[in-house]
Design a protein around this nucleic acid. Structure first.
Length: 566
RNA sequence: UGGGGGUUCGUCUAAUGGUAGGACUACGGACUCUGACUCCGUCAGUGGAGGUUCGAAUCCUUCACCCCCAGCCA
């Protein structure tokens, strides 16, 4: 743990844990769980929950279970289960074999339900779903009791048994908890706790014809697993009375408590599972792991590190406030993580040919370059240099604006690690006026990047050798949406997608050392940003890199401000 | 309109009756063979109104605004 981490204040949930420990509750145990439903991929919002739950277990010497909350057979499947496990592991957390499924508890849950029936605290209702809804009342009006609410224990037991046996069709009956139809809390108006669903479940197959609902399942799963602190998001706060009601009315192995925190909201993206599914299903992105997606697998493919995601989750804190986090915080965490450990390398995204007129035709040489400007332990490499090189198109301007200190006609700049060059001639396409190439001269005495006469140049630009560089595909990513809060409206959110969120460059050139990159290896392309060799598409014949994040660019700001002033 | 939460710099987040602090962003500067990194600095906040108190972000009263809830989803 570094200094900033040790100084970080404890959140309100950890304070509750502190107090529980002090009061010697739960026999001094701390046991949490991360309970995703396997109906989609995990996203950064889940990462916050994962870091909280596993983090508390780690900090207090406790345990954290992975529990797949699979009570809805129509939406869940094994692909999602596998993806969830992979993502949690990638984030760096370990459930130490405690991989549980709510579906494993179906038999016990059924027994608990019959217990409730025997106590007269649950009944089989035969109203249609529409009738149940209309009986529920509204925010301001109390609900009305169902005409089936006073069936005898025997009749309820018999009907529930027949529901389980598959004697009824979907929707014919439900099991409801008998609580209070006039409660101001809608969740307490005799909530449905079991429904008939003749669907095949990804784990239990066709064994069950009835499935328990969340409110009944979750608290009991927690109790069965002896969870001490059941941490969930704010929208379940209203459900806590029901969570408590179920546990207080049943004889369970333990008595967990639920605590709620505010879910993460990130600018310029969406974290609603339903909408993420839409993006994937309608093909607005290339899949769950598209580098633009806020999914864990998406940001992994984008090149984010698990360390940076964990750091981010710690920095945003845990409170009950409605929060909306700047993308810049995540980017900052990433840059901070990558800067000290990403090897530097040169690549040219938009190549502009440069011929060094006074460099001998048949000559070539190797220039030494350090792999990291600060950390010499990362070593050095040799980069080929020759008469024809390529530089970034942005690094040349025919009519340079004020404070532009890159290449321009007559100007001298340094080629990083190599020589000073001076632009002598601009060769253009006579028709279009497009700049085709530059003719420059170099100063042989400036080899290595310094002139013996002590003369200085303001600009240093990156380059690659024309003869030796590798062609690469570089994928540039930008925010998925054009507005900070695309979730604000309901209907038009797809119209707010950023059409330029992905830009694929197929003619980029990278230095030859990159031939030996491995998928998921991260580099800093000097002066450009951090890039990762694509996890799936990279190969030696066709190097593919994703831009993870750009470097901070104060020139872009100066330039933008100057333009704005003009 | 019922119930449940919430409100501290632009954004997160501390301060739990005793100097409103940190991070991100923004802006300015130093340094620089990356307009990077690093370093230094600047701007900037307690939703409003009353009250209690020597002293209030914190306690009380009241008002305002924001979020969640009427699935046989989770």
């Amino acid at each position: 743990m570094n200094e900033s981490e040790s100084r970080r204040p404890v959140d309100f949930i950890r304070r509750i844990v502190d107090e529980d420990l002090k009061q010697k509750r739960n026999d001094g145990r701390v046991h949490t769980r991360f309970p995703p439903e396997p109906n989609g991929y995990l996203h950064v919002g889940h990462a916050k929950s994962i870091c909280l739950n596993f983090g508390i277990a780690r900090d207090y010497g406790g345990k954290c279970n992975l529990r797949l909350d699979d009570t809805n057979p129509e939406k869940e499947n094994d692909e999602f289960v596998e993806a969830i496990k992979r993502d949690v592991r990638w984030l760096g957390f370990d459930w130490e074999g405690r991989e549980y499924y709510a579906s494993d508890y179906f038999p016990q849950l059924y027994e608990y339900a019959t217990d409730l029936i025997r106590q007269g605290k649950a009944y089989v209702d035969s109203l249609s779903s529409e009738e149940i809804r209309s009986h529920r009342g509204s925010l301001t009006e109390p609900g009305r009791e169902s005409r089936y609410c006073s069936r005898s224990v025997e009749e309820n037991l018999e009907l529930f048994g027949r529901m389980k046996a598959g004697e009824f069709e979907d929707g014919e009956h439900v099991l409801r908890a008998r609580i209070d139809m006039s409660s101001p809390n809608l969740n307490m108006r005799d909530p449905v706790i079991y429904r008939i669903r003749k669907a095949s479940h990804h784990r239990t197959g066709d064994t069950w014809k009835i499935y328990p609902l969340y409110d009944f399942t979750h608290c009991l799963s927690d109790a069965i697993e002896q969870i001490t602190h059941s941490i969930c998001t704010l929208e379940f706060e209203d459900h806590r009375p029901l969570y408590d009601w179920v546990l207080d009315n049943l004889d369970t192995p333990s008595r967990p408590h639920q605590y709620e925190f505010a879910r993460l909201i990130l600018d310029y993206t969406i974290l609603s599972k339903r909408k993420l599914i839409t993006l994937v299903d309608q093909g607005h992105v290339r899949g769950w792991d598209d580098p633009r997606m806020p999914t864990i697998s998406g940001i992994r493919r984008r090149g984010f590190t698990p360390e940076s995601v964990r750091d981010f989750c710690e920095r945003i804190g845990v409170t009950k406030n409605d929060t909306r986090i700047d993308m810049s915080l995540l980017e900052n965490c990433l840059r901070e993580d990558l800067d000290p450990r990403a090897p530097r390398v040169m690549a040219v995204l938009q190549p502009l040919k440069v011929v060094i007129e006074n460099y001998p035709e048949d000559q070539e040489e190797e220039i030494s370059a350090v792999n990291h400007p600060v950390d010499s332990a990362m070593g050095a490499r040799r980069i080929p240099f020759g008469r024809v090189i390529y530089i970034e198109r942005d690094d040349f301007q025919e009519e340079p604006p004020a404070k532009y200190y890159r290449l321009a006609p007559g100007r001298e700049v340094r080629l990083r690690y190599a020589y000073f060059i001076t632009c002598r001639e601009v060769v253009k396409d006579p028709g279009s006026g497009e700049i085709l190439e530059l003719h420059c001269t170099y100063d042989p005495l400036s080899r290595g990047g310094n002139a013996p006469d002590g003369r200085k140049v303001k600009g240093t630009i990156h380059w690659v050798s024309g003869k030796h560089s590798l062609q690469a595909e570089v994928r540039l990513y930008d925010r998925l949406f054009n507005v900070a809060n695309p979730e604000r409206g309901e209907d038009d959110w797809l119209d707010l997608l950023n059409p330029d969120s992905e830009q694929i460059l197929t003619t980029a050139l990278v230095e030859p050392s990159l031939r030996h990159a491995e998928p998921e290896a991260r580099f800093q392309f000097e002066r450009l940003g951090y890039f990762v060799a694509d996890r799936y598409d990279w190969n030696r014949e066709r190097p593919v890199f994703n831009r993870i994040v750009t470097l901070r660019d104060s020139w872009a700001k100066v330039n933008k401000n100057t333009m704005a002033d003009a």
